[in-house]
Each structure stands twice: as structure tokens, then as C-alpha cells.
């Protein structure tokens, strides 16, 4: 018997709950470090990004109005589905250059991080909101709200855990996201999109693009309908570009400079706070 011809996967973008190819028709040839496999990855364009922002904006109000309980359940669901797809991520992570042991650890951490943030869904507002004792007959309270649409540049050096660590605090807080996957390790970001797609996450809440950071960074940080931009990396010029572009519409730049995402310190409610706004409401107390 001859060797079976295996069915190769096409790695596409994830926009508005669908898996389109890039509108530009361009692709990047991606080869693993051992040069055993060659994959065509979509080279997402600024128009793909634009479409993703439209989808994210459309989904924003519905997602932020979901109950915290529901968002927590959905994040937990992502963790569940991820657990069930361990094998596929093992393959992709090792293909991307991790050892088996490293891959296993990364998958474990990714799942645990999702569960961790799922648990924060109905707590961070409690912990970080308050009643302010103003010196007037008013009831005054402050609580957190999602900032809106968040564009994120995922870390390049750690793909699955990086994607999870960046996305989870954004979406658990009611934001919608457009994430640019790791350029050097794009495979599991798209497979992670499939996980999200099957986890009751509404269309448009998470959008994932692959492509070239050097090309897309400018657009991610300059789009006027994006409320915050999360950057993971260590390139001073890129950081300056992101921060400078943020000035166009006063978007909130969040910079994670050369962080070790497998460190437990890289999870926590303060990461959720990075893409939250504090709203304060006053009301008189009388009869």
C-alpha cells in the first residue's frame, strides 16, 4: 500500500466569525525551523484590518452588555474546547519549534490562563469599583466599563500562550478585539481562532489576522475607531510608532515590553484594567 496523502490545512484569517482569505490575495510562505513543512499563511492587509474593526465595533455593544456571568462561562468554554484540541496544538507548537515538553507546558498554561480569567469575569468590577463618600447629599459610585474596540499585537515569541494572555483580559472585560498573530509562529493563532469559533464567542468579538507586523502595525495603531491598542514586543521604533499613532484619537496605548508571558505575574486583574474605563455617576439623595 502506498503512503496516504494527508490533507493539508489552509490557514486563513478570522474576521466576524468567518474564516476568509485575505482580500488582498497575498500570502506568506511559512516554513518550520526544521524545514519539514511549508504552509501558506494569509498576508493580511490593512483592508482586512479595516473589515475586522467594523466587525469588532458591531459586536462591541452586544458583548459588553452580556452578563459578566455569561462572559465568564464563554471564557471557560474556550478553555474546555482548547483542552479537547491538545493534540493539534502539540503538533503545531512543536512544528513551530517548541520541544514536546515546552509545548505541553504552554498548552497547560494557556488553558489555565483562560480558566483564570473566566473566573475574573464577575469579580474584577466588584474589586475595582466603589462608592465614593462625597461631601454632599449625593450617591456617587464608580465602576469599570469596557473601553470598546481593542487592537492587539500579539507577542512574537510565544504563540498560543501569547494569544491567550493578550486576548483573555481584553474580552473578559467586555471589549472586542482584533489581534495580529505572531509573525514567526502564526499557526496556532489561527487554530486558536477555530477554538474560539466553537466556543459560543459571538461573531466579531475576536478577530485574528496573520500578516506582517511591519506592514500592519501602523494601521493597528492609527485607526480612528479603535479605542485601545495593546503592543507586545521590544522594538523601540515600533513602540514609538504605536504610542505616537495613538495620539490621533487619544487611544489608550498598552505596552508590554519584552515580557515573559509564561510568568504567573503576567496574569491578573490589572491586565483587565488596562482596557477598562472608570465611569462615575452622581445622583442626589432626597425625597
Amino acid at each position: 500500500m502506498g503512503k496516504r496523502i494527508n490533507v493539508q490545512k489552509t490557514y486563513k484569517l478570522y474576521i466576524d466569525g468567518k474564516f476568509p482569505r485575505t482580500e488582498s490575495g497575498r500570502y506568506i510562505k511559512w516554513q518550520d525551523p526544521k524545514e519539514t513543512t511549508l504552509v501558506n499563511v494569509c498576508r493580511g492587509s490593512r483592508k482586512d484590518f479595516r473589515n475586522a474593526v467594523v466587525a469588532a465595533r458591531k459586536a462591541a455593544s452586544g458583548w459588553s452588555c452580556r452578563t459578566a456571568y455569561n462572559r465568564g462561562q464563554i471564557l471557560y468554554r474556550i478553555g474546555e474546547i482548547l483542552e479537547g484540541r491538545r493534540e493539534q496544538f502539540m503538533t503545531e507548537l512543536t512544528l513551530q519549534g517548541s520541544t514536546k515538553k515546552q509545548a505541553e507546558k504552554e498548552i497547560d498554561q494557556a488553558i489555565e490562563r483562560l480558566i483564570y480569567y473566566a473566573g475574573w469575569a464577575d469579580k474584577y468590577v466588584q474589586v475595582f469599583s466603589r462608592v465614593n463618600p462625597v461631601a454632599m447629599p449625593y450617591f456617587n459610585f464608580s465602576f469599570l466599563e469596557s473601553v470598546g474596540v481593542v487592537a492587539a499585537i500579539a507577542p512574537d515569541d510565544i504563540s498560543l500562550l501569547g494569544s491567550v494572555s493578550v486576548l483573555a483580559p481584553i474580552i473578559v472585560g467586555g471589549n472586542t478585539a482584533i489581534m495580529l498573530a505572531s509573525e514567526s509562529r502564526p499557526l496556532c493563532a489561527i487554530t486558536f481562532a477555530e477554538v474560539i469559533h466553537t466556543s459560543d464567542v459571538p461573531a466579531g468579538v475576536v478577530n485574528i489576522l496573520t500578516g506582517q507586523r511591519s506592514e500592519l502595525l501602523d494601521h493597528f495603531s492609527s485607526h480612528m475607531d479603535v479605542n485601545a491598542v495593546v503592543y507586545c514586543g521590544n522594538d523601540p521604533e515600533e513602540i514609538e510608532l504605536v504610542q505616537s499613532n495613538s495620539a490621533l484619537n487619544v487611544k489608550r496605548p498598552v505596552i508590554y515590553r519584552g515580557q515573559n508571558w509564561s510568568d504567573k505575574k503576567m496574569q491578573g486583574p490589572y491586565h483587565i484594567l488596562e482596557t477598562q474605563e472608570t465611569k462615575t455617576t452622581w445622583h442626589p439623595v432626597g425625597v
Binding site: 462625597v134 461631601a135 449625593y138 456617587n140 462615575t280 455617576t281 452622581w282 445622583h283
Partner: peptide
Amino acid sequence: GVIWANTFNKFDPSS
């Protein structure tokens, strides 16, 4: 960031 319900332009250091 600030909503004044049945009031306006109120400020307090704790707010």
C-alpha cells in the same frame, strides 16, 4: 467618564 444624573458639574476629591 462622569455622569451627572439629576445634577451637573459636581466635584469632590473622592470622586
